[in-house]
Amino acid sequence: MGDFRPNRPHSYTLYCPPLETSPGIARDFVTSVLRRLELNDAVDTAALCTAELAANAYAHAAGNGSVLWLAVEPAEVCVTVFDGDLTEPRLRPPNLDAEGGRGLHIVDALADKWGTSPGAPLGVGGAPGKGVWFSLTTGGS
């Protein structure tokens, strides 16, 4: 899966307004969906990675908010967070004195795969942007 591909049997979309609470809302949304689908083995990792990507979108999306897309297939969960920022994220050497800068390291360590996709869906200010995604292999069949 790995990138934004709508119209999956289990795909969900959430608009996250440009609010400080949006990363928590995104995390709770993913948690709720995965629990409802009984994918409990993926909940904690997906929730943490989602919160990190949503926090990055909040910090860098220039006040337009972001759109979260969650796709669930039998053996994989994929979360993409779209924002209007054109800057592609990259892993940077950690700075122990900095307050931030560890989110992608967390995603890199926990997700099976992660990356970026160009473009942003409608609802992110109509501006071009990017999606940052991660996927997790689940125990589903």
Rank of each mutant, 00 (worst) to 15 (best):
H105I: 00
V81Y: 03
P74W: 05
E88N: 04
A59D: 05
G65Q: 11
A51Y: 06
G103H: 01
A71M: 06
A55R: 07
L91K: 01
A57T: 08
N95P: 04
A71S: 15
Y58Q: 10
T80L: 15
N95H: 14
L70R: 07
E88K: 03
F82P: 08
G100T: 11
H60P: 05
E52D: 04
R92I: 02
P94K: 04
G100F: 07
S66G: 14
E73F: 06
A54E: 07
L68G: 07
L104T: 00
P74M: 05
L91P: 00
G84C: 11
D85G: 13
V72R: 05
L104Q: 02
G103C: 01
R90E: 02
L53K: 00
G84N: 13
P74F: 04
A62Q: 12
N64C: 08
E52A: 02
V81S: 06
G84W: 06
H105L: 03
A71W: 01
F82I: 04
E88I: 02
L96I: 11
T50Q: 11
D83W: 03
D83H: 06
T87Y: 03
N56A: 02
E52I: 00
A57C: 10
L104N: 00
D97F: 12
G100M: 05
D85S: 14
P74H: 03
C78S: 13
G100S: 13
L91R: 01
L86W: 03
C78A: 12
S66D: 06
N64R: 12
D97S: 13
A62H: 12
D97C: 07
R92D: 12
L70S: 09
H60M: 04
G100Y: 08
F82W: 07
N64H: 13
W69C: 15
A59P: 03
E99Q: 14
N64A: 07
A59C: 05
L86Y: 04
S66Q: 09
L104D: 00
R90I: 00
P93S: 10
A55Q: 13
A57H: 08
H105G: 03
G63T: 08
N56C: 02
D85N: 15
E88C: 01
S66Y: 08
E99A: 14
G101H: 07
V77T: 13
R102S: 04
F82S: 15
P94V: 11
P93T: 10
A62E: 12
N56L: 04
D97G: 10
R90D: 01
R90T: 02
R90S: 03
V67D: 05
R102Y: 12
T80C: 15
A55K: 04
N56V: 03
L68I: 06
L104M: 06
V77N: 12
T80Q: 07
V79H: 13
A98H: 13
T80F: 04
L53Y: 02
E76F: 09
C78Q: 10
N95Q: 15
V79L: 10
V79Y: 12
R92E: 15
Y58D: 04
N64F: 11
Y58G: 06
L96K: 11
P74C: 04
A54W: 08
L53W: 00
V72W: 07
L104Y: 02
A71H: 04
A61H: 10
A59K: 11
E73H: 09
E52R: 00
T50V: 13
E76R: 15
E76T: 14
L104S: 02
G63N: 09
S66W: 14
L96A: 14
R90Y: 00
L86E: 12
E88D: 11
P89V: 00
